[in-house]
Every structure is written in C-alpha cells, then in structure tokens.
Design a protein around this nucleic acid. Structure first.
Ligand code: MN
Ligand code: MN
Ligand code: ZN
Ligand code: ZN
Lengths: 140, 140
DNA sequence: CAAGAAGATTAGAATTATTCTAAGTTGTTG
DNA sequence: CAACAACTTAGAATAATTCTAATCTTCTTG
C-alpha cells in the first residue's frame, strides 16, 4: 500500500518531519503533504480533516489535532486565534501579518515588509516580545 | 430591594443603556456597573459572571452572555478573540491596541497614538477596513 | 393607572471545538 | 529481530457558548 522507499513527492516532507524530530508516520506524512504541498495556507483542524477524508487518507480527528499541535510546537506551523469559533493553523511561520475577511472567515497574508510599525511602547515590566500580530479586519 | 428611583451611581449607567436603545433592566444595570464603574477592563463572560455572584447580583450565565453581546452590538463593548479558549470583552471601544501576556492571558491597552503603522497595503478586492488590531504578544 | 405587546431573563438542554483516556500499533535503534 | 518509545485512535469527557421555551419585566398607549 505504501512504499518502503518514499516516492519523490514525499521526500521533502519526510525530511522536514525528521529534521523537526517528528516520526514520519503515514498519517503525519499525508497531513504534511496536504499542508505543505503548494503555497501557504490557513486551515482549521476540521478543514484538514475533511481534505484528508476526501483524499481517502484514513486518519482520525484526534490525530489531526495531535499533528497540528505537534507541527506547531516544532515551528512547522503557527496557530492563529482570530475567530473565537475555531483556530487556524498557518503554514507560513515567517514574520508576516494578515487580512481577515470578516464575512467569510478567510485569512490572507500580508508580507512583513509591507507593514511598518514605526513606534511601539516598551513592554511593561521588562517583558520580552514574542511576536507582534497585525490583523487588518475587512468588512463586506 | 432595589430602588424605584435609581441611586446616584446608577444614573450614568442607566442613561448609557437607554441611549443605546437597551432596556435598563436590573441585570443589565448591575452588569454595566461592574463593567463600566471604573477604568477600562478586559473581561470574559465567566469572569463577569463570577464578579456578579460575588456581589450577590442574581443573574444567570445566559444573561451575562446576552448582555455582553447586546452591549457589543451597541458599541458599548468590543469583543476580542486572542486566546482560542475564550473571548474577552473590552470596555474600551476607542481606537487602541493590546499587549497580551501569554502566560497569564491578561490584556493591557496600548493607546492608539503610541503605535504608528506607517504603511499598509491596500485591501484586496477593494474591501473596506473595519479595524486594524495590533497585538503585541509578551512571553514570560 | 390598566392592559397588552415587545423585550428580557432563565434553567436546563444542546451544540461544538477541542482534549483526554487507555488500549493497540508502528517506527527506531541496537 | 527485540524492546521501547512514540504514535494513533475510538469514544468519552470537557468547556465555552448558544438555544429553547416558559416565565417575567418594561414600556407604551388609552
Ligand atoms: Mn490549541
Ligand atoms: Mn460571540
Ligand atoms: Zn499567514
Ligand atoms: Zn483594550
């Protein structure tokens, strides 16, 4: 069913998982392929689960959640909470910002260099900044 | 138990509700007082519910949610979703931004004038900006 | 003031995203 | 290959939020 020697398309994904210290299981490979195959994406757990089902990838919802969190903790993904109804996972882990289409719930990247935050007050109590998120909410 | 003629402290809150087109019920008055009595706040539904209980204000959790959403729809509050675990309601509805203490989950205001966003790309498809949120996440 | 209507409250059930549990399976390493 | 840790999973559990439908309150009008 699945090759011992990974087929071409899997190689990069497999290495990516190994480099991150994650075992390249069938489930993780399939999910990583869906996530990283082409371009950057913003997906919810439910969305990814449905994509997997559509492609006959047999994986449980618990595993989708586990994988998303594992990938996030290894910096292969970034978790975004904008809409209280569910989290999004962003395959773009670099420095960037977002347009948020309020009516559809869709996210679109804004390259970091397109936004310039000229001034920011010093964090209280000498705290360290872990990241600055700019969310441009769009109506209609 | 409760005065027919509102006591001094209630007057402003009562007017605020009426001006917003909301009936000043006992529950809304009590919650509005907790919310707006002093300074700006960022509270969750559960937090507000607990404060009400602590002050012997008899109000159901459903009413707390109803009031928070009613107030939000009348622009007396703003809803913020940062942490996927629950929503915050912000009594500061003016233009401003936030520090977010990742470990405690606390929010602190940053005055709008303290942040300057020099450049922003035009929204795709001619969409209109409804608001720009800057969230400075603080670790530790 | 006395309806009556519109609006608000509420207990408790329902919903839903997410997490947990515990048992079985698989990947890695020597 | 053996042994162990890591992973997957069905299904139960959790927790924030919403819904339902019955009961109150507030407001308006005569
Ligand atoms: Mn999470
Ligand atoms: Mn809401
Ligand atoms: Zn992104
Ligand atoms: Zn605020």
């Amino acid at each position: 069913m699945r090759p011992k020697i990974p087929s071409a398309g899997n190689v990069t994904v497999l290495e990516r998982l190994r480099d991150a210290g994650l075992r390249p299981t069938r489930q993780r490979l399939a999910l990583a392929k869906l996530l990283f195959a082409r371009g950057h994406r913003h997906v919810s757990a439910e969305q990814l689960f449905n994509e997997a089902k559509a492609q006959r990838v047999d994986v449980s919802l618990a595993t989708v959640y586990n994988a998303l969190h594992d990938f996030t903790s290894k910096d292969l993904l970034r978790e975004i909470s904008i809409d209280s109804s569910s989290s999004y996972f962003d395959t773009n882990t670099g420095d960037h910002h977002h347009f948020y289409f309020e009516q559809s719930g869709r996210l679109e990247d804004i390259a970091a260099h397109q936004v310039s935050i000229a001034a920011l007050p010093a964090p209280p109590g000498g705290a360290k900044i872990s990241r600055v998120d700019v969310i441009v909410r769009l109506k209609g």
